[in-house]
Structures are given as C-alpha cells and as structure tokens.
Design a protein around this nucleic acid. Structure first.
Lengths: 259, 259
DNA sequence: GCATTTATGCCACTCAGTGGCACATGCCTG
DNA sequence: CAGGCATGTGCCACTGAGTGGCATAAATGC
C-alpha cells in the first residue's frame, strides 16, 4: 500500500508523453543505422530514460526562455517534469548542461562523422569541413533547429551558459585532434597546424551559428514555410570556410582612407 | 576599546605585506605612464585594495595548486588572507575568476594595445599580432609568468576554470571586434573575416600558451637562469601565426600512404 | 515467478554566491 | 584639525546548486 501511494504515476506526466516517440516522428527516425542515432528498438528502460532526458531538455529550454536562466530553480524545473533533482543530475552535469544539450549532440555527431571520414589526400580543412557538413545534415532537423535556436539565445544572455558552450567546442576540438592523430598520424605537439585548423573550423561554424540565429530570429514565423534550417546553416558555414584564405590577407586602414 | 579588539591587524597579515610594493619591485613598476598599469602614486585606499586583491590571487593559486581547486573552500581561502568572503566577491566574480586573474590581465592589456595601435594599411592579422606582442612585452614579467603557469596548469585540470578561461578569450575577441569596428569601420555583420581573424589570433596565442606551459613545466628550475618567459612566449606565438597560411593548405592522407 | 541489475526518489549535507546593515577608515573641506 | 562624506569591509542570514547514501520500484534475465 505504501508503494502505491508513494510511487504513483505523476499527474503531470503529459510532458513526458508529448515528448515520447509516439508524437515526435522525427525524433526517433534513423538514417542508416550505422550511427547510434536514436535506437527505436532499444530496450524499454533506455527509451524511458531518453524520454525523461528529452523532457527535461524541452522543459528547461522553455522555462529558461520564459523566465530567464537565473529565474528558474532546478527544483521548479524538476517539479515541472515530475522528476527528482537527483535524477536530473544523473542525466546532466549542471544546470547549464541541460540547456546546451542540442549543441552537444551536434558536436558528438561531428566527431562520429570525422571518425568515419575517408581521407583522399586533399586538404585537412576540407575533410573536416565535410565531416561537419555531414553532421549538420544528420542532426539538424527542424526540431533540433528549434531547440538550438532557444539554446543559442539563452547562451548569449547567460555568461555561464556561454562559457560551457565554449567548453564543449574546445573539448570537441581536442577530441577531433586525437581522432586525427590516431587515424592519420598527425603531429599535434610540434606542429601547430592541426590545432589551428580545428580552431578555424570551429570559428567558422560558430560564425555560421550566430548568423543563422539572428536570421532565424528575424523571421518571425515559427515553423512556417521557410528554407530548411539545415540548408541555411550549411550555406553560412560554407561561406565562412571559403572566407578563411581572404581572412589572412585582409588589410585595414585608418577610418578616413587618406592616400 | 571595542574597535581596537575587533579591528586589530590580523596576525597572519604577512602575506599582504610580502605582496606589497615594498618586496615586489616589478609589481608596481610602470613603463611610460600612458597605460593604467599599477599606479604607485594612487591613493592609499586603492593601493590597499590592490594588495588584498593580489594576496587573494597568490593565496588562491598556491592553495589550489597544493590541494586542488575543489579541495579548497572559499572560507578557507579567505581565512588564509584574513579577509571576509564578502570582500572576496567584491574583488572577483567567482571562485574560478580569482585563479584566472593573470590571463585576464593579459587580455585586458591586449585590448589596450589594440586601442592605441596604428594601422598602416597592412594586413589586419599583423596589426592584431603586433598588439598582442606588445601586450606580452608589457605584462609578461617573471612574476606574471609564474602566476600564469600555475593558472594554466589549474585550468587544464579543472573544467570549470577552463570554461571560464575560454569565456575570457571570447569576450576579448568580442571587445576587439568592437574596437576594430569603431576605429576602422570594419563590418562585423556581413563579413566573416574580422571575426575569423580574431579567432585565429586567439587560437595561435592559446597554442603558444600551452606549448610554453609544458616547456616551462619540463624545465624544473623554478626561477633560475632560463630565457625570459616573455621571449619564449612571443617566439611560440610568432611561429603559430606564421603557420596560419600553411594550415589552410595542409593535406592529410590515410595512415599507410598507399598511392 | 524469482534474482539481478538499473534507475529513481528521498534526505541530509556542503558550499558557492547574494543582500542588507553596521562600522571602520581613508579622504576632503571648512 | 575636526567633523562630514565616501568607500571598503565584516558579519549574518539566506538561497540554490550539486553530492552521497540508502531504500525502493521497475525492467531484465533466468
């Protein structure tokens, strides 16, 4: 009798249900099965865990956007999803972490794509660029775009979130360098170029992200007819990569161009 | 009588004294007075504040290095310096902040140098590079080198410190872009190049920093005869900047170079 | 069905960080 | 030089993030 009272199904379990695979068709759609996307055939327990995780992410993005990052306590957030705070910290490392999940997913995908990339003797930057574009194509569906937009907007308002965002970027470049080192025997110690290349790529993508975010913010229509997000993002990223050589030679003169 | 008892000079005030201008000759030495280095002629109150600030920084770096970042509570740190926790948070924004002070000082100096830089119509990257080199030359005395070394070592062990470190870098690039925009009318919206250039420069300097740190760590001698730190750092930074063009064209092939 | 594993809830706790208020001290003016 | 003003500091109470331990529920495997 005790357990029936104590461990009842929460009344506000609706959020979990709406975030479940039944109503979000894109969430569990897999491409080719080669990459661990969202195994719809996974054991029940794991799917349940993913649902609560996703519910926490969505609730966090919504609440933080509405009332500000600092205006929402973890207790409130956990109440909203009907989950204990302890469970929250088994899914995320910090309050910032939950709101950065979309970008973190992306960077993970990038590393996976880099892992399976095939070198053709061409420039390293192009190899990495294509891996990143593949990652965009794989994860950047409209749901991801929506969440990432909220996440980016929050990050630029919240210093601690921005810091964590940059931390992800950096850990990704570190991991990317290790992959390149393992697979292609690159020298990361004495040669600055691999690291610089990785940082350049990240810089280009961050530029693409911010530009994409402000453009999407201007387009008031939430989900209406609009060029797909992934295409927008990919285009901006390509432009930034193309601009890399010209960045080195760009000149600057005093404000009044005298002589 | 109450105040004499309550506001006594703390017995362990020694740290404050050793950090005072009397025993640290380089700390208050000014170059040319054009930049707000460490005004030795400042009002007494401000000097006092600077002393406690510096004492907190040194104590933090020492304690964190000895017992780990997480192994030292702020209460312990403040007891060490005989300062209330409230005062700590008037000087620093967070626990991480105090340990990142050396690098933050550097970035501030960089922005100042960028502010007074004179464009000659040459590449933007060279302008920024020279500003950064000037900043190194200005702030990177041996004391700074020592503190920064501790700071870097802590940062790579402590994720939250690393995140804050990156946050500083990014805020610096933001500020640098604004300066460039104001002074040279650069377009930061439609043109990706200024931002990419700034990120490249930061990437080069971060590469220089890590290389410099591991090299300094290998050289066991703490303060003995050794090429001056600023020169080491400047050289590594120059190398990284020189390597930027080659980074764009660097190629990569499968591990076994078949055909 | 029963044992094992895994996820969760709950409780108590530490500690970073904040606001308010009183007080001390350097600074400045009459 | 006396007394007001501004500023820095200490103290106290408080919120909220994050952690560890333990009991329990539910999924899994037999």
């Amino acid at each position: 009798m005790a357990h029936a009272c104590k461990w009842r199904l929460p009344p506000r379990y609706t959020r979990l249900v709406t975030a479940s695979p039944s109503t979000s068709p894109a969430a569990d759609r897999r491409r080719d099965g080669s990459l661990k996307q969202a195994p719809a055939d996974a054991p029940l327990r794991e799917r349940k865990k993913r649902r609560t995780r996703q519910a926490l992410i969505d609730a966090a993005l919504e609440q933080f956007t509405q009332r500000g990052f600092g205006g929402v306590t973890l207790d409130e957030l956990c109440d909203e999803v009907e989950v204990s705070k302890r469970t929250f910290f088994r899914n995320f490392t910090s309050k910032e972490d939950v709101a950065m999940a979309p970008l973190q997913d992306f960077w993970t995908a990038f590393l996976e794509e880099l892992q399976i990339s095939r070198p053709d003797g061409g420039p390293l930057l192009e190899l990495a660029r294509d891996a990143l574009l593949s990652a965009v194509d794989r994860v950047a569906d409209e749901e991801w775009a929506h969440r990432t937009l909220l996440s980016l907007r929050l990050a630029e308002q919240t210093p601690s979130m921005h810091a964590h965002s940059l931390h992800f970027c950096d850990r990704t470049t570190q991991a990317a360098l290790e992959i390149l080192h393992r697979r292609f025997n690159l020298d990361n110690r004495g040669d600055p170029r691999p690291r610089l290349a990785a940082d350049m790529l990240v810089a280009a993508f961050r530029y693409a992200l911010t530009g994409w975010a402000v453009q999407a913010a201007r387009t008031s229509e939430p989900t209406s007819a609009r060029p797909p997000a992934k295409q927008e993002l990919a285009t901006r990223f390509r432009e930034a990569v193309v601009a890399l050589p010209a960045t080195l030679t760009m000149t600057v003169a005093p404000r009044r161009t005298n002589s």
